[in-house]
Design a protein around this nucleic acid. Structure first.
Lengths: 230, 230
DNA sequence: CCGTGTATCTCGGGC
DNA sequence: GCCCGAGGTACACGG
């Protein structure tokens, strides 16, 4: 990792063309050849960047550039696409390098995948006597989160969201339409399960005959603990 | 802007909980109080971060932490949500500050709007004998990108995307449903035009009788150049 | 202020 | 490898 603070301008050509006028910025050069150009504002997104895999090479400034005050220039090119980023440096204010080693990486906890896992284990939360057929049941337009059967053996397609909004109801509707054409599955009942269901989503779902199910994450996790600890 | 290279561990609690085990990393502290935690890999996204508006305050390490080798700790709290990020520092390897000033910002040359403009000019790409009615044809639920007529005079509604995905098909479907209720327009044929159409989107579109049209941006731009240069 | 649509999205998982 | 869904999405633009 090399960190350079410099007065510079930047030009990018790839999916779009973009230009950064001359200003003081922080350039972060990672070991994989990638580069981030950060200013003192914005959020975590750099003003401009090049994602790996890419290579950084020095460019020889021509006479015009030297006359304009450019003391150094870098060309960062992507290895697979034609993306190109050029940093023109007017002054280097700080330049330091550090060996950071390989990062152990982020450990995350508590997302949608976990909800799906829990509901698959506790499928009777969908209704008494329900049984799991499989998670991520594939259809030509994407995977249904959970396919189950109710006590009578009828198919139940379950879409799980952390926050249930209209998009999720649309998604489930598409699956249901397709699955109901399959004589082996039809008729398929839809269940929209989420930790929180927006009123508009609930209205739309119920209007389409889709059942809504609120999930209590803490309670479900508690159940799991009970199952695993004893 | 303060840049700290340090041996540290990080804990985050907010929408999710996350933990970064002890390792050498780069900490970028922006003037608005926000912080980015970067490693030497990944892309422009930090391992962890806090977006503005937020405040950074030093935490006094307790005995256990001091015994564990923590020499300093920071608490970064979001001003509106309950998000909290804690950086525990075992060793500071480098610490520097710079006044970067306000950045003039990125100047983009877009592509998205240009596609619509080009297709309106080259409307026969939709089909022989097609004529443009108008761009951004307003409906009660939003503007259709292009309304045209085919060689027989029948209405054609065109939705344009750079990348055609399922959402775009849904959007066009809603427009078509509405427009087909208007006796002046009906029947309206749907055309889903994009530089790239995902298989699932194509499947859904064709299932709904919507025609898919691949757009070649370079070719279309080339046509335009020919028109404008000579 | 909030919703909507886009993104050089990034990131992870399945096939 | 591609394709797809999710995101602490971020971000601009419109109402």
């Amino acid at each position: 990792m090399r960190i350079v603070v410099a007065d510079c301008s930047v030009d990018y050509a790839g999916r779009l063309s973009a230009h950064l006028p001359r200003a003081k910025r922080v350039l972060m050069l990672k070991n994989d050849g990638s580069i981030l150009v950060h200013s003192d504002g914005g959020s975590y997104k750099p003003l401009n960047w090049m994602s790996p895999p890419c290579t950084l090479a020095p460019l020889e400034p021509d006479e015009d550039q030297l006359a304009a005050g450019i003391v150094e220039a870098w060309e960062v090119t992507h290895k697979k696409t034609a993306d190109r980023l050029i940093v023109s440096i007017f002054e280097i204010i700080q330049d330091s390098s550090h060996d950071l080693g390989v990062d152990p990486g982020l450990i995350k906890d508590g997302v949608e995948a976990h909800l799906q896992e829990l509901l698959a284990e506790q499928i009777d939360r969908v209704g008494e006597g329900h049984t799991l057929v499989r998670r991520e049941y594939m259809t030509p337009i994407g995977p249904v989160d959970i396919l189950a059967r109710d006590a009578t053996g009828a198919s139940v397609a379950i879409e799980i969201k952390r926050r249930g909004e209209i998009d999720g109801v649309e998604q489930l509707t598409r699956y249901l339409e397709l699955m109901n054409r399959d004589p082996v599955l039809a008729p398929v009942q839809g269940v929209f399960a989420a930790q929180e269901i927006k009123p508009q989503a609930r209205t739309l779902a119920e209007d389409r005959g889709i059942r809504c199910l609120l999930l209590d994450y803490d309670e479900m996790r508690g159940m799991e603990d009970k199952n695993t600890l004893f």
